[in-house]
Amino acid sequence: MMSTPALRETTNPYIVQLVRSVGREADVRLFSWRDAIMGRYDVLHVHWPEIFTSASSAPKRWARRVLVSAVQCRLALTRTALVRTAHNERPHEQAASVDGNILRRWDRLTTLWIVLNERTTTASEAPTAFIPHGHYREHFASYERREPSADLVSVVGHIRPYKGVEDLVSAVVSDARPDAFRVHVAGKPANSALRKELLEVAGDSPRIDLELDFIDDARMVEVISSSSLVVLPYRNLHNSGVALLALSLDRPVLVPDNAVTRDLQAEVGTDWVHLLKDDVDLPSAIRTALSLGIPAGQPDLRAREWSVTAHEHAEAYLRAQKIRRKRS
């Protein structure tokens, strides 16, 4: 059972590809509270457990907390294995104390972790399986691409505080150098305060284009393909589907310099992954990356084929099931 309840237009494309590809290797069910508590399944695969207690009102949040506790009791009392994908080493937003306790119980119940890079530190001592994040080439292959503009940079995806988008906008608005470039920000802010801040920081700058709303797959391809560089000005970057999405659409990326992004650069090529050093300001790094243009050919994403990824997930589920049964 996957922790996603349905495949919708707004579902993370990584999850869509995972469900469909793993479905060719195993019997995959989508999540429902009833089936998660009462149904028959061997493995529960959870991605972002904090989403389970997310709700629009306090009563709904408390109802979800009760349901989560019921699922956790089922896992503790049965031979059902819990597999967790460690997308991040810790949640990006601070949880309420009661939700923090729920998250820690998820950690204690985890049978097996799936890590997307070999540098991930998990929240418990459960065994790990390294399965690289799959690419997006086939998923977005049917969408029409645009010709890139040499001076256009894009920032795409759900806008959250840790991504530093407002820092990028502020840096570009304050940049007075003559060789100007433009920035297109496309994505829905996490809250109204962040939306307001972006609008205030951008002001009436002709160099900033804010598209602050959900963008579907077709629009995502349009925005990325029309730019010559995709920038991820994150304050903390560990794994990034957006970076792989840009690379899958044959556009170079500018990412913070850390051990994980250096590994990605070594994997796909220095022409495709530009590193933002601590001693270089963001506009200067963007100018340097833009001056190099879009490389010829495609980045090397052979290690991220979904046929391999699906098989490795199926093997991880079997491994987790054996571990859980031995502990029972």
Rank of each mutant, 00 (worst) to 15 (best):
A36D: 06
T120C: 09
G39C: 01
R84Y: 06
S97E: 11
R90H: 14
V98H: 12
A55T: 09
D42C: 06
R64A: 11
W106N: 03
V71F: 01
M38Q: 11
R74P: 09
E50F: 06
W48N: 01
A63F: 02
R90K: 12
W62I: 14
T78D: 07
H45N: 11
V43T: 13
K60G: 14
D35Q: 13
P127D: 10
C73I: 14
G100Q: 14
I102H: 03
M38T: 12
V83E: 00
R104C: 01
C73Q: 12
A81T: 06
A70D: 06
I37W: 03
R90S: 14
T111V: 08
T53Y: 09
N117T: 04
I102P: 01
T53E: 11
V43W: 07
H92N: 07
G100E: 14
W113R: 02
A63K: 10
V68E: 05
S124T: 11
L112P: 05
R119M: 13
M38V: 13
Q94K: 12
A81S: 12
T80D: 07
Q94H: 11
S69K: 12
W33Y: 12
I51H: 13
L82A: 03
L75D: 07
K60S: 15
R64Y: 04
Q72E: 13
W33M: 13
Y41Q: 05
H87D: 04
I114F: 00
W33E: 10
N101S: 15
A86Q: 06
G100P: 05
I37A: 05
P49D: 05
R104M: 03
T85D: 04
Q72T: 11
T110A: 01
G100T: 10
L82P: 06
P91F: 04
L112M: 01
D42I: 02
H87Y: 08
R65A: 06
I114G: 00
T85W: 01
A36P: 10
R104V: 00
P49S: 04
T121L: 13
S69Q: 10
R74Q: 07
Q94R: 14
A86T: 01
P91E: 09
A55R: 12
A81M: 11
R119N: 15
A55Y: 07
A81R: 07
H92S: 04
R65P: 00
P91M: 03
S32C: 08
H45T: 03
V68R: 01
T78W: 05
S124P: 11
